[in-house]
Simulated assay, not measured.
Amino acid sequence: MAEAKIKTVQGGMVNENIKMTGKTVLITGANTGMGLATAIDMGKRGARVIMTSRNMDRGNEAKDTAVKESGSENIIVKQLDLSSMESIRVFADDINKTESKLDVLINNAGVMMCPQSKTKDGFEMQFGVNHLGHFLLTNLLLDLIKKSAPSRIVTVSSAAHYKYLGAAIHWDDLNLEKNYTPTTAYAQSKLMNVLFSRELSKRLEGTGVTSNSLEPGAVKTDLQRHVGTHENPTFMDRIMGWANSLTRRWWRTPEQGAQTQIYCAVAPELEGVTGKFFANCKQTGESNDAKRDDFAKRLWDISEEYTGLKQKSEEQQKTESPNGGEVPKADDCEVAQKET
């Protein structure tokens, strides 16, 4: 008699019998909320778990919680500040030197609707952390991830990337210095997450590495601590604040909210599936802007420049060029930084 096939999702939760034994999973922003819930889940599945945290006191407390609740000792935590490119480079260099493989990277960390501020490198905080930080980190770990194929990159976006919530890429003012609002900045960064994942999937074709993005739904975490607290809020900021206070009692727990990113990381049926967007543990449609390949490529080129990866890429191409000549530059794009 044929063995019954394991159903991946049951009652909105990913089947605990799908194991990750022998695999290494890295989760950004794993000291709280969905990141911590994901770390506990992966520990239970037998994975080696690498948690990251900006604050190591909180990170170590979270690691102790993950070890206790998962029953796994194969969990570590490392310091990573996604608002600092220096921190990202130090972290990636450490991972590349100390880890022999990286089967799953979950880009979970983020900030949401914070007061106007800048990263250590001078970028608007949500643009810098939610997009540029993960863009740089992923690229710096890409060789290790490719070496570990079949492997997966999972990027957490949000329903805020949809146009009806005002999401748009402000090409002539990516740092929103002319007209900053917390909602506009957050929505832009979440649209960038989906565009990044889409372009990454195209660049990874044939490597055995997949790239998918998702939205977790409304989840009760401390991510929303800034919502509705701003001075001189815009109409949309007020709407978000009211919605936050009125509906929060019905939101998902961190464990429930983490299920879609867990699904993208472990589901057997997603082997080879790439460039897609998920919600509620199912593939779903992203926004029309998130499907724009020209947007995705333009954002990639700009991000390479802002993170310093473009110069490195061109220097490598020049070294590899048969005649040692100048490498043609990509078309110039006129640009006219915990959990999501």
Rank of each mutant, 00 (worst) to 15 (best):
D332P: 07
T210V: 08
Q311H: 13
K147S: 07
M240K: 04
R298S: 13
S189N: 11
W300M: 00
G241H: 12
A336G: 14
V129K: 11
D332A: 07
A168V: 02
Y180S: 07
L204C: 07
T98D: 11
H134Y: 09
E326P: 06
D293F: 10
Y164D: 14
D222N: 10
D93F: 08
L140V: 08
G325H: 03
W300D: 05
I18C: 13
T8P: 11
M20D: 06
I40L: 02
E199L: 07
T234I: 01
M236Y: 01
E339I: 00
A30E: 00
E61A: 11
W300F: 05
K190E: 11
A149D: 04
L141Q: 11
K78E: 15
K7H: 13
G71N: 01
E271W: 04
V273N: 04
L223K: 03
L165I: 02
L299M: 07
K23P: 12
F91Q: 11
L26D: 15
R252T: 05
T21A: 00
V49Q: 12
T247F: 12
T155Q: 05
I95Y: 10
V111I: 14
I239P: 01
L270G: 06
A109C: 10
Y306P: 02
G133N: 14
A258N: 01
Y306L: 13
G12T: 12
K220N: 08
M51F: 10
A187P: 09
T247L: 14
F127V: 08
E69R: 12
K312H: 05
S197D: 10
R225I: 09
E286P: 04
N17H: 11
I76Y: 02
S245M: 13
Q317W: 05
K178D: 08
D121E: 15
E286R: 15
N280I: 01
I27D: 13
T274E: 09
G46Y: 00
A2F: 11
L176T: 06
G33E: 07
E271M: 09
S158I: 04
V219K: 01
D143W: 09
F278Q: 02
D103P: 06
S53N: 00
E205N: 05
S70G: 08
L102M: 11
K190N: 04
G133E: 12
G46W: 03
D41P: 03
P254Y: 04
S151L: 01
D93C: 12
G110Q: 10
R58T: 07
L200T: 04
T207R: 02
S151V: 09
A296Q: 03
Y306E: 14
E314A: 07
T181Q: 03
S189E: 12
M13C: 14
T210S: 15
Y162H: 15
P322W: 09
D331Q: 13
E86M: 14
T210W: 09
W171I: 05
G122D: 10
S83H: 06
A168T: 12
I302K: 02
T253S: 14
G122N: 14
R203G: 09
D93S: 15
Q79L: 04
S287M: 03
R252I: 01
T138G: 11
D289L: 06
I27A: 13
G272V: 07
Y186E: 08
G241S: 06
S70M: 00
G35S: 12
G33P: 02
T184I: 11
A149T: 07
E205F: 00
L195K: 02
V335H: 10
V90Y: 14
G166K: 04
